[in-house]
C-alpha cells in the first residue's frame, strides 16, 4: 500500500493497489461482469445488491463501453472502452471520506499536497431508474472519481443507503503518470503502453459503432431482448432477466451512436429499459428481504 516516491505507478499496479486497499477494508474483490455495460454501476453487484436490507461490501474493475465516446483512437482523452474501478458499500460507513482519501494515497495521490474537492454532482440514471446525491471528486481541477449515495435504484427507495465510489482509472493514471495522452499510459513495469493494447480496438470499434453497426438488425435484437426479459420475469428469474436488460441497454447505446434514434424515440427506448429493470428490481427484492 505504501507508494514509493519516484516509482512509476503503472496502470495495472494502480488496479492491484485499489483491490488490495479495499480488500483490506472488508470488500470482497469481484471480477468484471462478463457483459458490455456502460459503467461499473450496471454490474449486478451494484445495481441489485444496493437494493434490500442486507449489508454488502464489494470492489471490482469494470470495463465500460460508451459507443458514442469513441474517437477512432484519434483523441487523447476519449475512448469508447475504458476502465472503472468500483467500490460499493452498504450501509455507507461514517468514515467513508477518510477511507476514500486514503485509497487515493494508495494510488499515488496524497490529499495533503493536492487540492481535492467535492463538487456537487447529483447522479441520475434514467435507464436504471436510479438516483443518488453526491459529488464528482476533483484533484487539482481534474475529475478523478464519482462519489454517490444511492437514494433510489430500479425505481425503489434504497434502505439502508449504499455509497458508491467510481474511480476513472485512465484519468487517475494520466494524472499520476503525468501523461497528456491516454494512449501513452504505461500498463506494466515492462513499459507496455495503453496504445499497444487498445489503439486497434478503439479504431475498429469506432468504425463499427459509428459507421457499420447494422441498425435494422439491432432494432430487431432490442425487441427480442425485451421479450426475453419479460418471459424470464414471468418465470421469476431476476438475474437472467437483468442480463437481458444489460444487453438491450448496450444495443440501445450502439443505435444511439449510429444516430439511429430520434429524440422522441430516445425517451421511449429508455423507458422500455427502465421498465425491464424495475421488474427485475421488484423480483430481486422479493427474494432478498
Amino acid at each position: 500500500m505504501v507508494f514509493k516516491k519516484k516509482e512509476l505507478l503503472t496502470f495495472q499496479s494502480s488496479i492491484f493497489n485499489l483491490q488490495n486497499y479495499w480488500g483490506k477494508h472488508g470488500c470482497i474483490i469481484l471480477q468484471p461482469y462478463d457483459m458490455e455495460v456502460g459503467a461499473g454501476t450496471f454490474h449486478p453487484a451494484t445495481t441489485l445488491r444496493s437494493l434490500g436490507p442486507k449489508s454488502w461490501k464489494a470492489a471490482y474493475v469494470q470495463p465500460s463501453r460508451r459507443p458514442s465516446d469513441g474517437r477512432y483512437g484519434e483523441n487523447p482523452n476519449r475512448l469508447q472502452h475504458y476502465y472503472q474501478f468500483q467500490t460499493i458499500i452498504k450501509p455507507s460507513p461514517d468514515n467513508i471520506k477518510k477511507l476514500f482519501l486514503n485509497s487515493l494515497s494508495a494510488i499515488g495521490i496524497d490529499h495533503k499536497i493536492h487540492d481535492i474537492r467535492f463538487i456537487e454532482d447529483d447522479w441520475e440514471s434514467p435507464t436504471l431508474g436510479a438516483a443518488g446525491l453526491g459529488w464528482e471528486i476533483w484533484c487539482d481541477g481534474m475529475e478523478i472519481a464519482q462519489f454517490t449515495y444511492f437514494q433510489q435504484m430500479a425505481g425503489f427507495q434504497c434502505n439502508p443507503i449504499s455509497v458508491e465510489i467510481t474511480y476513472g482509472l485512465e484519468r487517475i493514471c494520466m494524472f499520476t503518470q503525468k501523461k497528456k495522452n491516454v494512449f501513452d499510459l504505461i500498463w506494466n513495469s515492462d513499459g507496455i503502453t495503453y496504445k499497444e493494447i487498445f489503439y486497434e480496438s478503439e479504431k475498429e470499434f469506432s468504425k463499427y459503432n459509428f459507421d457499420l453497426a447494422n441498425t435494422k438488425s439491432l432494432f430487431v435484437t432490442f425487441d427480442i431482448l425485451e421479450k426475453e426479459a419479460k418471459d424470464l420475469l414471468d418465470n421469476n428469474l431476476a438475474l437472467p432477466a437483468y442480463d437481458q436488460c444489460l444487453k438491450a441497454s448496450h444495443v440501445f447505446n450502439i443505435l444511439d451512436a449510429r444516430g439511429a434514434i430520434s429524440i422522441a424515440q430516445r425517451s421511449d427506448y429508455i423507458s422500455k429499459i427502465r421498465d425491464m429493470v424495475k421488474g427485475v428490481g421488484e423480483l430481486w427484492l422479493k427474494g432478498n428481504n
Binding site: 447529483d122 446525491l133 437514494q151 434502505n159 455509497v163
Partner: peptide
C-alpha cells in the same frame, strides 16, 4: 430543495 439519507 434536495435532501438525502445515508448509512442506516
Amino acid at each position: 430543495k434536495k435532501s438525502m439519507r445515508w448509512g442506516s
